[in-house]
Nucleic acid binder design. Structure first.
Lengths: 370, 370
DNA sequence: CTGAAAGCGCTTACAG
DNA sequence: CTGAAAGCGCTTACAG
């Protein structure tokens, strides 16, 4: 049913080796033979068996991509761009979704690497201290860390290797400076952050970046109020609810990713707050939908295309055996996209006049994205 | 660096065969030996080389998934669910994005199938009349058609095989009945459709389904105005612009997928129309964001989880060699999600009073999703 | 209950 | 310029 190399060789009366060499463009095969081979292969519909080739050459021409949540459109778009870049370089992508579960991350990691399923892995880590990651480090795995930096404790070869891995992520400091300056200009002096888990390096880093930007713009450090989420919509709902319930609630909130931002927005709605009159809001990770929100969301847009190409370039570099690519080129900048979800700090009169004015029905949080 | 079966065998002083049989749970290996093997494999971190196993057993335990646009969150979520179901059954998923390009679809299809990269393929066809699809049909490929039915012309074994393929897609007729009845109740008598390409079976089918529902609810056939898109945001923008420019424009519009819906909405905004006062709007393919739109969108939500599990079950059934699964179980129902984007048919006075009242800045269409 | 051996479909030194 | 042969790491009849 399936055409083998041998079938092509038999049709032409040449050896397997000749077909293989001709198809790979090896110059020691004469042009006449090569042309005949190519024509015959085409005619029979020959496609090389990838497993056999992989077994023989120890190269799968496949990249593993482990994302933390493929239903988050940020990762959906990122996966799309990665697949596109990889395909241009002749690589397939095996998509794995850890779904924020460290055990799933480890299982995928070890199958991909130790099982020789992939020549290299792009990992959006859900946890950076798992046994699987240590094992991958000890094995000197070809791996690129994507979007979320890892913190590797301890010493030894495994830890050193993990620390030497290329890390591709965006630099949002400039976008955050614009965001913070806008908020301060509008009179906000107390700002909430819906932050990623503080147990993760990304969580601590993003919290610090946001806080630094706000303080640099003139907000007092103790007026930056942090609530921790877990990257999921429900946690954003809970974090916003908690921020709004404080005795001195913030008048502006920055959410550190899309799903948490959507959850936070639903919480604001459930509390009958109107944006931007009662609350100003900024969200990380732009999508094509945010401009159609009520109100159109002001966001910090990560440069997805650049992240994808940097990540693919980095892993291909590792596979090619070159030196670890220059880290400094792997931090493309986020951009500040100003729309309509930030307004002047509400005074007690404006807030009271608007609150409870709207009451769109809101789906229960997490209904779609549990 | 990587641990092989042989290393495990050497450590224990047994043969390769014993290790292989023990790990696969073959009862002819004694429990004592099996336990020792499992412990040793665990300790060394042994993971079987997938390429070798695939070559030997002619089974990759990999499913190919070819979607037409992974940046569309409908397909992102679908891919996520498919991956989850496949993983439960011990299968990996190789994600391929044809990006609505028939040549890319064919290339992926042939590499996956003829190259023995996958045991079966789930295909969201971007075109149903390509050479690659015919070749796959002629080879009797294990394939499940997903979301979009295919129309196979001609006769012969290849065509017969393609026609016999399980097709998994939703049934939206009931949701559309609700949608049509709502619009008619609200007084709408002229309805626009932003339809998929009429050259595709899905395009014709969805157009007919929508039209049938509207006519059954009381709309005259010639008052159903169809503009054709190509599944992309920009085409939705163009289609809506064209609908609104007609001498007798529809007062309600139904968009046949998410990206076209978003484009259509941007066009309505660009024309300074307010929803639902000036225009009622319904969109296929719900997302977690649509309830936060201005206004919250009324949608027809496809049952993504059910589609994913039906598709995975169907392909696993084919791989297991069973009969083609019962088609009737493969049409899970869409649901009608009523929010706030449909309102009473505008009279000339209400429309003129509201049009041009809003003017949110709108990003140029296709900026994010080109 | 366990081992020796063949073979999946390729690629690549080694001969000629 | 081309062919014969080995071998990648597994699984699985076949012996014992």
């Amino acid at each position: 049913m399936v055409v083998r190399l041998r079938d092509v060789a038999a049709l032409l009366g040449v050896s397997d080796a000749t077909v293989s060499l001709a198809l790979s463009g090896n110059p020691r095969i004469s042009k006449a033979t090569r042309d005949r081979v190519i024509a015959a292969a085409e005619e029979l519909g020959y496609r090389p068996n990838r497993a056999a080739r992989a077994l023989r050459t120890d190269a799968t021409h496949t990249l593993g991509l482990i994302v933390s949540d493929i239903a988050n459109p940020f990762f959906g778009e990122l996966a799309s761009e990665i697949e596109r870049h990889a395909e241009e370089a002749g690589y397939s992508v095996t998509l794995c979704n850890s779904n924020e579960d460290p055990a799933r991350q480890d299982n995928y990691l070890l199958n991909l690497l130790a099982g020789s399923q992939a020549d290299g892995v792009l990992l959006v880590p859900t946890s950076s201290t798992t046994a699987g990651l240590r094992a991958a480090g000890a094995a000197g795995a070809r791996m690129v860390v994507l979007d979320r930096p890892i913190a590797v404790p301890g010493s030894g070869l495994a830890a050193d290797h993990l620390r030497s891995l290329p890390t591709v992520r965006s630099d949002s400091s400039e976008a955050l400076r614009h965001a913070a300056e806008l908020l301060v200009e509008l009179g906000h002096r107390r700002v909430g952050i819906v932050a990623p888990p503080q147990g993760t390096p990304l969580g601590r880093e993003r919290r610090r970046e946001i806080k630094d930007a706000l303080v640099a713009a003139g907000v007092t450090g103790r007026d930056v109020v942090v609530e921790e989420g877990d990257f999921r919509q429900d946690s954003g709902f809970a974090a916003m609810t908690s921020l709004l319930g404080k005795s001195n609630p913030p008048t502006a909130v920055i959410a550190a990713d899309g799903p948490m931002g959507v959850g936070a927005l639903k919480a604001a709605r459930a509390a009958h707050l109107r944006l931007p009159d009662d609350l100003s809001f900024i969200c990380f990770d732009d999508t094509p939908w945010f401009e159609l929100f009520d109100p159109p969301l002001t966001t910090i847009a990560q440069p997805i295309r650049e992240l994808a190409s940097a990540a693919v370039d980095a892993i291909l570099g590792l596979i090619a055996g070159g030196p670890v690519p220059d880290q400094s080129r792997c931090r493309p900048r986020s951009t500040f996209v100003q729309r309509a979800s930030c307004g002047p700090r509400p005074t007690s009169s404006t807030r009271s006049s608007h609150a409870r004015a709207t009451s769109y029905k809101t789906d229960p949080p997490g209904k779609k994205n549990s």
